[in-house]
Amino acid sequence: MALGGNPVFNGKNFRGAKQAPPVPQNPYGQQFNQAPGRAPGQVMDGHAAWSAQQQNMTNEQLQQMYNQPAAGPADTGRMTYDDVIMKTVACLVVLIIGAGVTLFVAPALSTTLMIVGALGGFVLALVNTFKKQPSPALILAYAGLEGLFLGGLTRILDGMYPGVGLQAVIGTLAVFGVTLVLFKSGKVRATPKLVRFFMIATIGYAVFALINMVMMWTGAVQSPFGLRTELTIAGIPLGVFIGILAIGLAAFSLIMDFTSIEEGVRAGAPERYSWVAAFGLTVTLVWLYVEIIRLLAILRGDD
């Protein structure tokens, strides 16, 4: 996996998750390396085993065996792109359901659920990130809690600046689609230099976000978005520049997610790791959506 990518994939290197292929079997259940008349566990070399099998099979049986399609990744319990797509869709469906709850309940309850979703989602994000084996239930629970948070956030910002919610959804889908096309075309890759820049920029952004949060909580700044709107550069709120940087970082995080998934499929990782891939994509998409809707709100507030 690309070093410095989505922390969800750290410690779950797909390249180290290869499965040993199952022992080939003929359509009638007898293993190729077990010759008739030999004790169980007494193994023959491949050529001798195959010759012994041939002697005990009719031409019709041989032809039937040859006509069978080769086993694909899904047949051998390995991760496939279809697995990742279906599980990512499942996470997003649960997320949308959670968002729908906070969008349509009473305002006071919506705010409470948003806070619960934010705190619960953060806790489950850590649990799922450091958990050795993926848990579908915990991953879907994370998606549902993040849905509560995103729905509440969207309700607040869309109430202040009508239309930003829909614009943020469209923007998130657009960035995801463009990033995927660029990755598939090979025009953008997670090179070591870009990964190092991503790590440095992400750490810097995290430090800024932490300082900004503390200043807002302590009342040091009174602006709705803290330093993002309190400070300006050439008359443009600092949050615009920070937001564009953050969206770029989230987009590059998608590139590294795609790289990890590609490596997992190529390495023949176990099928359960498709849940890790779906979780990683969900985490990045949540981050991307939050940055886009916040940037849109800052731009609308500056009008």
Rank of each mutant, 00 (worst) to 15 (best):
Q30L: 13
G243D: 06
T172G: 03
L95D: 03
A35S: 08
Q30F: 12
T112F: 08
G121S: 03
A17W: 00
S185P: 04
Y142E: 13
S223P: 13
L180T: 08
F14V: 00
Y205L: 03
T154H: 11
S135G: 14
L281I: 12
N26K: 05
T202D: 11
N26W: 04
L92M: 01
L285N: 04
A48N: 10
G204T: 05
A141I: 06
L254K: 12
D303T: 14
L119M: 04
D82R: 08
G268E: 01
V214E: 01
P162E: 10
N67E: 06
G159S: 10
D303L: 06
F208L: 02
C91G: 06
V169F: 15
V84I: 11
A70N: 09
P36W: 14
Q19I: 15
Y205T: 04
L150W: 12
V123Q: 04
Q222R: 09
A99C: 07
Q55V: 10
T191K: 13
E262T: 13
G264M: 08
G98C: 11
N10V: 10
Q61H: 05
T232R: 03
A99W: 06
S253A: 05
E230R: 14
G151Q: 02
K187I: 01
V84T: 02
Q30M: 08
R189G: 00
G301T: 06
G72H: 15
G186C: 01
G4N: 08
A267H: 11
Q54S: 09
F32P: 12
A90H: 04
R266A: 07
A209P: 10
V214M: 04
C91M: 13
D302W: 04
M256E: 02
M114D: 07
F183M: 07
V93D: 04
S274Q: 07
I170L: 07
L140Q: 10
G117C: 02
F104W: 09
T154V: 12
Q63I: 05
A277S: 02
P27W: 06
M1N: 07
E271L: 10
D82L: 10
G117R: 00
N10C: 03
P7E: 09
E271I: 14
V169T: 15
K131Q: 15
L119Y: 03
L296Y: 13
T284E: 01
